[in-house]
């Protein structure tokens, strides 16, 4: 039992891994929420989700470099991402209505390569820095340090989740999205314009992604290709949590982040990603629909 006694250094190390994991996990969670939104509305896995993140970060950085005040730059960047979300749904997903799921996935992959290519043409290939929102001084807690930006990530993440919950349970539009995801035909019968709803889902998902991209940029830097791996991790988080479940996305994201950090800290940094991927397999073996995935009735 000696090991269980709180050795102060061991505890501060543990806390450090935890902070690291929760911060990065919160980012994964926000991306996973974006996946979830689009998945719920259209059953499409949007592989261009990471690009919204990139647009948010890159547009903010380039606008501020042009002398636009930070806050305005953020608003414009988020609006730009929202437009891209709408464009993605209108121009790429909607025209391919009778395409099957795999084809739709490939379309989103094509879209993500296209968007990344555009970003590279417009903004170049360099990594860019975004200053911390509130000072560089880290906060110390029991010997572990927390980047002040981590608090922003967590805070913004929490606010976004609260807004989403409110949106889906209290507003007509949100309820319409939910209704469409449950049964498109029935939703149409009760007068919901399902195409409009789909567009809205893509837009909200893009807004979410771009905000995540902005709050995280001071920690990760930003570049035209930052979306690839973060988007992928977001998908992983959404799958662990159970596709279509908002709670699942948040839990999945945090779990993935914490497992990665703990694996890097206690097991092997070489294999920390392998540990994370093994965790996914393990979760899926025992819970084939992720942690919180709904049982979907298969149409025969």
């Amino acid at each position: 039992m000696a090991a269980a006694r709180a050795d102060p250094i061991m505890f501060s190390e543990f806390l450090q891994y935890l902070f690291t994991g929760i911060t990065i996990g919160a980012i994964y969670a926000l991306i996973a929420l974006g996946f979830t939104l689009i998945y719920n509305a259209s059953h499409v896995i949007n592989f261009a989700q990471g690009e919204f993140l990139m647009i948010g970060g890159m547009a903010t950085v380039s606008l501020t470099a042009m002398g636009v005040p930070m806050l305005l730059a953020i608003v414009l960047a988020v609006a730009l991402a929202g437009l891209m979300g709408i464009a993605l749904q209108r121009l790429a997903i909607a025209p391919a209505k009778d395409a099957n799921v795999v084809t739709l996935i490939i379309i989103t992959i094509g879209a993500s390569i296209f968007i990344r290519g555009l970003a590279q043409l417009v903004w170049g290939k360099k990594y860019h820095v975004m200053p911390n929102f509130s000072g560089d001084e880290p906060i110390e807690v029991f010997g572990a340090v927390l980047n002040s930006q981590s608090l922003w990530v967590l805070g913004v993440g929490a606010v976004l989740v609260a807004v989403l919950v409110y949106f889906f349970t209290r507003t007509m539009t949100g309820k319409a999205i939910l209704a469409t995801s449950m049964n498109k035909d029935a939703a149409r019968l009760v007068g919901i314009r399902t195409q409009m709803v789909l567009m809205l889902a893509f837009m909200v998902s893009a807004l979410l992604g771009s905000i995540a991209g902005i709050v995280v940029a001071p920690i990760t830097f930003t570049s035209y290709d930052i979306g690839i791996i973060l988007g992928l991790k977001g998908f992983v988080a959404a799958a662990i949590g159970g596709l279509g479940s908002g709670v699942g996305a948040v839990v999945g994201g945090l779990a993935l982040g914490v497992v990665e950090a703990m694996a890097a800290g206690y097991l092997s940094s070489d294999y920390k990603d392998a540990v994370a991927f093994s965790m996914i397999l393990l979760v899926l073996f025992f819970m084939p629909r992720g942690l919180f995935g709904a049982k979907v009735v298969e149409r025969v």
């Binding site: 190390e13 450090q16 902070f19 973060l230 890097a264 800290g265």
Partner: peptide, 20 residues
């Protein structure tokens, strides 16, 4: 002797290990 992936966004855990 620690490593990190090319697209990792946080290496605090590895550095904590090294410090210790």
């Amino acid at each position: 002797d620690e490593t990190y992936g090319g697209s990792d966004t946080d290496m605090t855990a590895q550095l904590t290990n090294i410090r210790g």
